[in-house]
Write a protein that binds this DNA or RNA. Structure first.
Lengths: 367, 367
DNA sequence: CTGGTCTGGGAAAGCGCATTCCCACTGCAT
DNA sequence: ATGCAGTGGGAATGCGCTTTCCCAGACCAG
């Protein structure tokens, strides 16, 4: 018992398929009221569900929007995905999900798959990379995107443009002011942590998001008259933060004259404290966990700040200083800017993304 | 410049479209080596990408799997989604995402949309509800699923069967032993918290997952010779947990003879302690935050346990006692059991879901 | 009353592909 | 030399829908 077709509905209603199509789907021509009623009645007496594939084939558009993320279980991407999903629903589209772990090769395949499904638009979240091992992948990805755009596809990239992508009118970038915000964070921290040394826990070199935030932070430090911070590189996730945190914990303990047992006086003696900036919240949490596992306490033995303001992490204690990013909104903006409507609106540029430095307990001056 | 078609490739290669189709897509008939090479070469010189819509139309299958969740930004669903995504990739399919906030009406629409797109299978995560206001929605959803299955669709539901769904051979349920696990948790807690009273923070009545866990917990308590716990109902998310937590905080403070300032002696005086079981981790975190905001400390002034073992929450302190659920695996299992292959394998029932009670600091006996 | 313009419905041609059927040809046994 | 199965390619049909084009009738002005 296959699903019923438009033709069957038409026959039941005693009209031609053309007419049935016109009444059941938004067509320019509106058939007469009586006929419309008859068709609609026939349709739901048959439980008719239009075949989106056939519709797509005929109209060459699918009502699909492709979303590419590194990892859907990462709360950063999950938040963006929620925004995308929401905007998609507004537009009456569905979202197709692809996860790639950030490998440009996989992303290229995802784009090809979306193109095959004739997705109306593609949203690419997740940091672009300029690492040399990704050069080929980036080129392939750029070529694939280019082709997709030339065939009328719309793509929106969150953060940075894809390396080497040609600027076409179907290609939008949702700029996230990572650098400026990191600079603001640095300047605020420089003010409140006057006696601290700074150290940065970053992702692998070449990851744009990470690099931007590092650069911005250093710049903010410089403007505040502080020396540049040392940079520890590790992977862009919780594990990376943890690893770097262990390294830092060793140093902190080594630098302390007395043994660092629980109940120590902490950093009160005027020796310089350490303020850690992890380039994202998840890494910051990892680092904090590492410090704690080494018997150190935050903000007593070191202070720490992250970036993103992940919602799920907001109950973490001590509350994490960070930079708030409207992740969900970013997802919405990206989706809208890649919607056909945005292009039609012409100059209606989507509102730019704004973040906000949010200092909390994890960088508060020890009492 | 529209995307190139099979016909164009065939023409370039000097063969018929039929032959081109046979070489480019896995067909039973394999054309000769020389011809195959010619076609393949023509294909990628043209940058040919098969039109999945047309393929789907012709084959009436789409390589799509639909995933229904309440909220993709909820780490519980995000984790399941990762598993689904992973399994889908193994099968060479893509996942279509729909979020419904748990409203059966929306879920019905999502199923219809998936059916329209001729998704090969549908995975429904997220608790079913038997609330009276959802009765109609549930019936609609069941009818829609039924139709989908009759048309050859496969559906897998995580947790509970959809209310009123007819058992058909395309309908699979991935059982999660919520009740048993909650009972185990209760029994372990009853043993380690010999002097505590128990209270349960549950979701709205009628939510199966919540109800099962509550029932199981009560049963575990009973088997341990404890009286049933009082049940506080609120919404099934962090906010609900927070709200219930505030209520409990009031009570705890009221029950304490001396004022509950910081530095109080806590619960040492032999008065009975309170052990809170929140039916999921996110609610537990919310409740913990509420207690903390009221100046109470865990596990000193109250102990608390959750359910799910959400990864992102694992760095929360005090570490949350909970029941570990292999969320990602659950997603994989659901996806596989809804794959055509699972049906083909016949008796190869997917391994059942097993959880594990995981006691951590949040329910540790106060030192 | 007639010629013209609308209006609303139907017939038919694809959209891009898979697949069934058909046919020409080869190679082998008879 | 003849008949046969077997092989490999092409023509044609259809998946379910949209949309252009066409046509019959209605309606108005002249």
């Amino acid at each position: 018992m296959a699903a019923s077709t438009l033709t069957e509905v038409a026959r039941l209603a005693g009209v031609s398929p053309a007419t049935a199509s016109r009444v059941l789907n938004g067509s320019a021509r509106k058939p007469g009221q009586d006929i419309a009623d008859r068709v609609r009645q026939a349709a739901d007496s048959l439980g008719y569900i239009p075949n989106a594939q056939a519709q797509g084939l005929a109209k060459s558009s699918s009502g699909l929007i492709g979303l590419i993320v590194h990892d859907i279980a990462d709360p950063y991407f999950a938040a963006i995905a929620r925004g995308v999903q929401e905007a998609a629903r507004e537009q009456g589209r569905m979202v197709l999900l692809a996860t790639t772990a950030g490998a440009p090769g996989d992303e290229k395949e995802a784009v090809a798959a979306f193109a095959a499904r004739r997705a109306d638009s593609i949203v690419i979240a997740g940091s672009r990379s300029s690492r040399t091992e990704d050069t080929d992948g980036n080129a392939d990805l750029a070529a694939e995107l280019d082709r997709y755009c030339r065939n009328g596809g719309q793509v929106a990239v969150v953060g940075h443009p894809v390396v080497g992508a040609a600027v076409s009118d179907g290609y939008h970038v949702v700029e996230v002011p990572n650098e400026e915000l990191a600079a603001s964070l640095a300047s605020e921290l420089a003010a409140s942590r006057a006696d601290d040394d700074f150290v940065i826990i970053g992702g692998p070199e070449g990851l744009f998001t990470s690099d931007d935030r590092i650069r911005g932070f250093q710049q903010g430090l410089a403007e505040a008259g502080r020396p540049p911070a040392e940079i520890l590189r590790s992977s862009f996730n919780r594990a990376g933060g943890f690893e770097a945190g262990l390294t830092l914990a060793e140093r902190i303990k080594a630098a302390r004259p007395e043994a660092g047992g629980v109940g120590g006086t902490g950093n009160a003696g005027g020796s310089k404290g350490l303020c850690i900036f992890a380039v994202n919240d998840v890494m910051a949490i990892g680092a904090a966990a590492a410090l704690r596992s080494a018997g150190l306490r935050i903000p007593r033995d070191a202070t720490i700040a992250g970036f993103d303001d992940i919602e799920t992490l907001r109950d973490f204690r001590p509350a994490l200083s960070t930079v708030h990013l409207p992740l969900e909104e970013i997802g919405r903006i990206a989706t809208r800017s890649a919607a056909g409507t945005a292009a039609a609106d012409g100059t209606a540029a989507p509102s730019p993304v704004t973040g906000r430095v949010t200092l909390r307990r994890s960088t508060e001056t020890a009492s």
